[in-house]
Amino acid sequence: MGILEIKDVGKRFGGLQALSNVNLSVHENSVHAIIGPNGAGKSTLLNCLVGKLIPDTGSVMFDGQSVLGRTPHEINQMGISRVFQTPEIFGDLTVFENMMIPCFAKRDGAFRMHAIESFTNETSLVEQAEQMLIDVNMIDKRNAHSASLSRGDKRRLEMAMCLVQQPRMLLLDEPTAGMARADTNNTIDLLKEIRDTRDITICIIEHDMHVVFSLAERITVLAQGTPLVEDTPDNIKGHPKVREAYLGEAA
């Protein structure tokens, strides 16, 4: 029984069957990658997990509770944090302020009025935020305007914002898309460190095989909206069905 159980999920957009009969189980504290060619339904599946889309059929259970019909902020409060393809951070705020927001969300829930005390007086949360910045090597940029960060640092900040909430599961949507090689390797190192030092389940959707094979413990290959195979990276590498789906018959 995995921490995330996807059963018979189907989703149709007009005439397009984006997902059909998706069955997937992600085990606790593992790194599970979902790969597949363009249009395989990876993003649709992810959107079904975070509350952005509701599947037409099937169920999605996280730690024994259904996530279907819940809003994104409720799903986050259940312990699923999401990292976006292009880093989504609070660009108008400083790095430190960016870090404080998830700390408040974790402690106070989806809405709470704290309108009198200054937020910098919340000593324990400030410590938590600063410790996280130290962990991701960004403490020197504490007071920088987050919009002025490099792409790699924005990604690092976004992950720090997710991790400071101590989620049970981290969902990553093509975290290295459009990144230079050096930034990609930095991200891989960061993810490896997260994998090795924290009790966290990582589910990663990725295009870049280099990233997938250096991180994942299990890989699911999605093609035309349905899982083709699920196996360990070594077995996936040589799998004829995968080669066919990815590279076409000629390969």
Binding site: T71, R82, G91, L93, M100, F111, F119, M161
Partner: peptide, 25 residues
């Protein structure tokens, strides 16, 4: 302006998407 509430209001202006996926309504 200086309170956590004020910080959340600035977050609303900056990025509501990130706010929702950070567990805030």
């Amino acid at each position: 302006f200086r309170s956590p509430f004020g910080l959340m209001l600035r977050a609303v202006k900056s990025n509501q998407q990130r706010m929702r996926y950070t567990g805030l309504n």
